[in-house]
Design a protein around this nucleic acid. Sequence first.
DNA 1: ATGTAC
Length: 470
Amino acid sequence: MQQINHGSNHHEIVLEHGKLHVFANEEVLESFQSKVYEMADNNLRIPRNVYMGYTPDAHVGVGTCIGTTAVWNMEDGCVSPSIVGVDIGCGMRVHTTSLHRNDIVDKKIRRALIAAIEKYVPTNERTNTHYADIDIMNVVQHGLGGLPDKYVPDNQWLTHVEQAVFQYEHAYLEHLPPRILKNAHGQLGTLGSGNHFIEIQYLEISEDQRELAAKWGLFEGQVVVMIHSGSRAWGAMLGREYNMALKEAMHLWGVHNPDPNLIYAPIASREGQTYLNLMYSALNFAVSNRHMIAFGVREAFREVFGSELEMPVLYDLMHNYALKEFHRNRPMLVHRKGATRALPPNHFLNTPAYKTTGHPALIPGSMGTSSYIMVGREEGIKNFYSICHGAGRARSRRATKELVTVDQFQQSLRVGTEDEVLVNHRTLEKILDECPQAYKNVDEIIDSVVGASLADVVAKCKPMAAIKGL
DNA sequence: ATGTAC
């Protein structure tokens, strides 16, 4: 395998069907399995690919690795439901508070917060939304613009997001999968399961980032809430349905790929257009879902700390989507599957609120380890301004359950110590596959990203309480 | 990931 080194942590790997750019330090690079290169090569067979890159958290996924940035020209390119993944619109959101870590160090207060959050944000499957008065058809068409005014505490909740509404041709809603309305109904403002979470964290800000942090309203020891969720059944059903539909179309067209799970179509095709348009409906659901989860979290915090408590949104952004973006003076379709956009200061794609500073790039850690708030650098263009989306899985859910004991999980959450990360579950057994041991070391991943000059760390977010769904 | 399920 020929490899060209482009300087610090940037490796260009020459595969049979094209080039793959990998951003990782030596240690992380060596940990990559040969399967991730096999998958990249299959993805590079998709016609007219412009760019393909891996962030250091890359690991094997269905059809395409999680940690992939893959780009085509809008004019003649392809769209792939496999490179978006089924968790369409999954992403991160952070709200700040005026509270200091010392205000919630008392475990009784944190337990009260967890209980209150569980009251306002359903975390179990089959628990219904508290917002039955919201019409989800309005939401999937208009994003945050489809929410009743009473659920928008401040205009700031509409401006401090990657995108408040994804516009598309609503006529395509005619092609929604059967039962999608029935299944997604009652899910707005609910957490979901798997790696989704709500965490109460406090910030550690290094000396050299205090100025930027202050501009963003962040301070040392500050309590923040991080939310990780997506489009629930709405996106999952679309992902599933259109993987099948486009697979059928590939068969009819005589298009073959060695990986039967790698599905794609020309953007200009009827099938490609249908998927692309409906995918945007899922992005609208996803951003609205995180908004309503945050609304519930705010209610919970106000129940504990009083109704004067402000909880402004820092930012909301996605790591599973395909977005039309202008690069090299032409419209391109940028797929990010488990990859986070991190735009640098003054980049024109920044939302106005963050035009001059660049926007916060929100990177979740695993339970019990730190999460990160980062900011992109100019050099990030090397990977179309994509950085990692988290630690990345080190082993499968099944392998984790065989390897790690509940006791070891408890130890990693520092149970019984003052530093304990409180969890909403009485027993950790059901979420054992989400233990830190299931994930790579997030610090190593962040080191790779910083070392590659893609982004800088602004704040480290240390967990104090975690709410996980089932 | 998902009101799963070759």
